[in-house]
């Protein structure tokens, strides 16, 4: 692996040139954008809502604060944050993909969420925000799609205010053998079929399953956060480790 790490990276199980991964990821999300919310509910059997609720509860978010919902996609978290921080606060929904941003923006508009949300097309590796700007950064199911995760973490650290928090919600390593067997079967056999059935796009969901496997496990991600200077890093396993929420502070 080390001999290829210079300029290649993973796209699911495939190894691709670093500069093409972003485009490939973009294709995936362009193609799933319209059906994204439905698929989320179907594929996770609604459980993603509980994971997101847990994330909000761990965020310590308050009225009047500034939040960055990174890789925010269709804006589930943004919607909640917008209501909690209120008119004196500010939520930024950032995503690299303009199809996802568009779907997100029109969804939030329809929900009546206007005034304290702004939409920014941005790459997590090079965030276009000033230093020490946000009280809270969340990245939910986004980090595994990012090509250079260390660079992204460093960039998040830079734009976070001292005293601020980073929350990473991401698929992780199931804690129990039987669970991980079932999970493997589900993600490699059922998931792509469902993807084909509902969104007529099995490849994107094949990619989803593969990218989940290639993502760093709980301890590794915690180490990565520490190396990016985050302090007090910790994680919570959700649904038996299928998903983990990592939390780190900048002091």
């Amino acid at each position: 692996m080390s001999n290829q790490s210079e300029n290649t990276t993973h796209f699911g199980f495939k190894t691709v040139q670093e500069d093409t991964k972003a485009d490939l990821v973009a294709d995936v999300f362009h193609s799933v954008a319209a059906k994204y919310d439905v698929m989320n509910d179907v594929l996770s059997m609604g459980v993603h809502r509980v994971w997101k609720r847990f994330t909000i509860d761990c965020s310590g978010i308050r009225k009047g604060q500034k939040v960055l919902d990174l890789a925010g996609g269709t804006g589930d978290l943004t919607a909640k944050f917008s209501r909690i921080v209120g008119q004196t606060g500010q939520v930024t929904l950032a995503d690299i993909n303009d199809s996802m941003l568009k779907v997100g923006r029109s969804k939030l508009r329809d929900l009546g969420i206007v005034g304290n949300v702004s939409y920014v097309q941005a790459n997590a590796e090079e965030l276009p925000f000033p230093d020490n700007h946000f009280d809270l950064i969340t990245i939910a199911f986004g980090l595994r799609n990012v090509t250079d995760k260390d660079k992204a973490l460093a960039s998040m650290y830079r734009v976070l205010k001292p005293g601020g928090r980073l929350l990473v919600l991401e698929f992780s390593k199931p804690l129990y053998k039987p669970l991980s067997k079932f999970y493997d079967f589900y993600s490699f056999n059922v998931l792509p079929k469902l993807g084909k059935l509902i969104a007529n796009d099995s490849e994107s969901y094949q990619y989803l399953a593969e990218s989940i496997r290639m993502h760093p496990c709980q301890e590794t991600l915690k180490e990565m956060m520490n190396s990016a200077n985050f302090e007090g890093s910790e994680y919570f396993n959700l649904s038996g480790g299928i998903v983990a929420l990592h939390r780190g502070y900048k002091y």
Binding site: I56, D57, G60, I61, R62, R83, I84
Partner: peptide, 8 residues
């Protein structure tokens, strides 16, 4: 919205 934690 109903939250089970609020630090403010």
């Amino acid at each position: 919205d109903i939250l089970s934690e609020y630090e403010g």
